[in-house]
Amino acid sequence: MSESGFDPGLTDASHAGVFFVTDEDLDALAAASRDAGLLARRIDLSGCDGKSALLLRMATILDFPDSSGRNWDALSDSLRDLEWLPAPGYVLLFEQAHDLRERNEADFDTLLDILDEASQAWASDDTPFWAFIALPEEDFPDLQ
Rank of each mutant, 00 (worst) to 15 (best):
residue 3 E to V: 13
residue 7 D to I: 03
residue 8 P to M: 04
residue 8 P to G: 07
residue 10 L to D: 02
residue 12 D to F: 10
residue 14 S to A: 15
residue 16 A to T: 01
residue 18 V to W: 03
residue 21 V to E: 05
residue 21 V to R: 08
residue 25 D to C: 09
residue 25 D to H: 11
residue 27 D to E: 15
residue 28 A to K: 11
residue 30 A to F: 10
residue 32 A to N: 09
residue 33 S to L: 08
residue 34 R to A: 14
residue 36 A to N: 04
residue 37 G to M: 04
residue 39 L to N: 06
residue 40 A to I: 02
residue 40 A to N: 08
residue 42 R to E: 10
residue 43 I to P: 09
residue 48 C to E: 02
residue 48 C to L: 00
residue 49 D to R: 15
residue 49 D to L: 13
residue 49 D to C: 14
residue 53 A to L: 14
residue 53 A to G: 13
residue 53 A to Y: 09
residue 54 L to S: 02
residue 56 L to R: 12
residue 56 L to C: 09
residue 57 R to P: 00
residue 59 A to K: 09
residue 61 I to K: 15
residue 61 I to L: 13
residue 62 L to R: 00
residue 63 D to C: 09
residue 64 F to A: 14
residue 64 F to Y: 11
residue 65 P to N: 04
residue 65 P to I: 02
residue 69 G to N: 04
residue 69 G to E: 03
residue 70 R to F: 14
residue 73 D to E: 11
residue 74 A to E: 09
residue 77 D to I: 10
residue 78 S to N: 15
residue 78 S to E: 13
residue 78 S to Q: 15
residue 80 R to E: 15
residue 81 D to G: 11
residue 82 L to R: 03
residue 83 E to R: 14
residue 84 W to E: 04
residue 86 P to A: 01
residue 87 A to H: 04
residue 88 P to F: 06
residue 89 G to E: 06
residue 91 V to L: 00
residue 92 L to Y: 01
residue 92 L to W: 04
residue 93 L to D: 06
residue 96 Q to T: 12
residue 97 A to Y: 06
residue 99 D to S: 13
residue 99 D to F: 14
residue 99 D to W: 15
residue 103 R to N: 14
residue 105 E to F: 11
residue 107 D to L: 06
residue 107 D to G: 02
residue 109 D to C: 10
residue 110 T to E: 11
residue 111 L to M: 11
residue 114 I to G: 05
residue 114 I to N: 03
residue 115 L to Y: 00
residue 116 D to E: 15
residue 118 A to Q: 05
residue 120 Q to R: 15
residue 120 Q to G: 15
residue 121 A to E: 10
residue 122 W to I: 04
residue 126 D to F: 11
residue 127 T to E: 08
residue 128 P to W: 00
residue 129 F to K: 04
residue 132 F to M: 01
residue 133 I to Q: 03
residue 136 P to Q: 07
residue 138 E to F: 13
residue 139 D to G: 05
residue 141 P to S: 05
residue 143 L to C: 08
residue 144 Q to A: 12
